[in-house]
Simulated assay, not measured.
Amino acid sequence: MTRTAPFDPTVTDVAPGPATGDADGRDTLLRRLVRIGSRPGPWRRGRILAAPALLLGFLMLCHARIPNGFGNPGSLIESFLPWFGLCVPVLLACALWRRSASAVVALLLPITVWLSMFGGMLTDKSRAGAAGFTVATHNVGADNPDPAATARDLVGSKADVLALEEITAQAEPAYEKGLAKAYPYHTVMGTIGLWSKLPLSDTRMVDIAQDAGPLGAAKPLAVKEADARALRATVTTDRGPLAVYVAHLGSVRVMPRKGFWTESRDRGVPALAEAMAADEHERVVLLGDLNGTLDDRAFVPLTSRMTSAQEAAGDGFGFSYPATFPVARIDQILVRGVTPDSSWVLPGTGSDHLPVAARISW
Rank of each mutant, 00 (worst) to 15 (best):
I192F: 06
R204P: 01
V104C: 15
S75Y: 12
R31N: 05
A106V: 05
T307A: 10
L231N: 09
L54N: 03
E280F: 00
V244A: 02
V223H: 05
R229Y: 05
L109D: 11
Y185F: 15
T112I: 09
L286S: 07
T123E: 12
P67N: 06
V90M: 10
I360Y: 04
L108C: 14
E78R: 11
D207Q: 03
L242T: 03
I333S: 02
L54V: 13
I192D: 11
V246P: 04
V252T: 15
V88M: 12
E280M: 02
V335Y: 03
R39T: 15
V235I: 14
P110L: 05
R98S: 12
R229N: 10
D279Y: 03
L29R: 09
K258G: 04
C87H: 05
I360V: 14
P16E: 15
T2V: 15
A163T: 01
G240H: 04
S308V: 10
R232E: 15
S100D: 11
L290V: 11
S75T: 06
G17M: 07
S79A: 13
P6C: 00
D24T: 07
M1A: 13
R253H: 13
A230R: 02
D296P: 02
R3G: 03
A217Q: 13
A19M: 09
L96Q: 07
W97S: 08
G120K: 11
S251E: 06
V285P: 03
C62K: 01
E311A: 14
Q170G: 12
D211Q: 14
A15R: 15
A131G: 13
R35K: 01
R32H: 02
V14R: 12
A95Q: 07
G318R: 06
D24P: 00
T137N: 03
P220G: 02
A130V: 04
F84Q: 06
T339M: 09
P214R: 12
M121R: 15
H353S: 06
L249F: 01
H281S: 10
L49F: 07
A233N: 07
A182M: 05
A142R: 13
V140C: 11
S201E: 08
G316Q: 10
K224W: 01
V155E: 10
T4K: 09
D27P: 00
L61K: 04
T293H: 02
A171R: 01
A50R: 04
V188S: 12
D13K: 02
V104I: 15
P322L: 04
W97D: 06
D295K: 06
F58R: 00
A128K: 01
T12W: 10
P16M: 09
R359E: 07
T112V: 12
P326G: 08
D22R: 15
A226E: 11
G37M: 02
A50Q: 03
L96N: 04
L198Y: 06
A151I: 08
L272C: 11
R39S: 14
